[in-house]
Design a protein around this nucleic acid. Structure first.
Lengths: 159, 159
DNA sequence: TATTGTTATACTCTATAACTATA
DNA sequence: TATAGTTATAGAGTATAACAATA
């Protein structure tokens, strides 16, 4: 007897999917929503969002970093980065000190409170990731990382 | 000589990632954004969004389907489904015909224009998916589907 | 001219709370 | 009581356009 293949069909058995489930973007989107909504709830006590934590994380490891560099790393536009930065400054987690070498640029630093929040958020993320990937073998996990990285690095330019 | 490992580090070489790149959610989010923003541009001429197309797709394959079933399939709340449905009705792509068996429920149907838009959107999606996954082998593609499905089906309940 | 940061605005996707109508 | 749909509201993440200040 063959092992039953596990598909999204099983969620709503009477629904004809008409090959919608062969669209990769659908599955990436669903899994992304899964990760984000679960993590948002875990981070709620720290009053930060997943993306805000990622910003804190890099500012902590790179004191004085510019918004432009964060924009490049996350592959999002500068005004988008700025929105997170503004919120984090407003909440007292981040400081913006203008650079003395290039007065256009500003360097970002964590406050003590920002460092504390980041520490707690990292623990929450570690738990969250462990929980959501517990069904995967070590090999599946590393394959997933490798394939996502390949997709990311080979993506055609935006325009 | 070893093959250089390809990582996100290479995008901004001077940035210390401090193991942020070992967070799976980061990569899923980035690849998701990549897929969504590219697809949105391709669908722009048809005046539909990715999620709207997914709704049209299932309504087309399941004439008279209820919003509740779409909610279950996509794992999103009913008001969220409703928002897409309302927009699609407003744009003339969808019709809502109240059920005669259960007057609480409504059945959804495509208009001729909705069918036309869906047809063109499916072609756009096919091109888009081919382009974004062209760097993957057939085996990598099927592994990716399988692993994402595993993550999706094993996810702990929301609350 | 090019770069950095900023402001204003808008869009997509998602959620919760509270309601109506029907079963 | 429970289900189907709806309305109102809000929040997270993203984008583009346009601008000031500086290089």
């Amino acid at each position: 007897m063959a092992t039953a293949e596990i598909t999204r069909q099983s969620v709503v058995p009477d629904l004809d999917l008409d090959e919608l489930d062969s669209v990769l973007g659908l599955h990436i989107g669903t899994v992304n929503t899964l990760f984000v909504t679960r993590l948002e709830k875990r981070l709620d006590p720290m009053s930060v969002t997943p993306k805000q934590v990622a910003i804190l994380w890099l500012v902590n490891a790179n004191p004085g970093v510019k918004q432009t560099d964060l924009s490049k790393f996350f592959q999002i536009e500068r005004p988008t980065v700025h929105q997170f930065v503004r919120q984090l400054i407003k909440n007292g987690y981040l400081l913006n000190e203008p650079s003395k070498l290039d007065r256009r640029a500003g360097g970002l630093w964590l406050t003590d409170e920002g460092r504390d929040v980041l520490g707690r958020a990292r623990l929450a993320i570690a738990e969250h990731e462990t929980e959501l990937t517990s069904s995967l073998t070590a090999r599946e996990k590393s394959e997933l990382f490798r394939i996502l990285m390949k997709l990311y690095l080979s993506a055609p330019a935006k325009d």
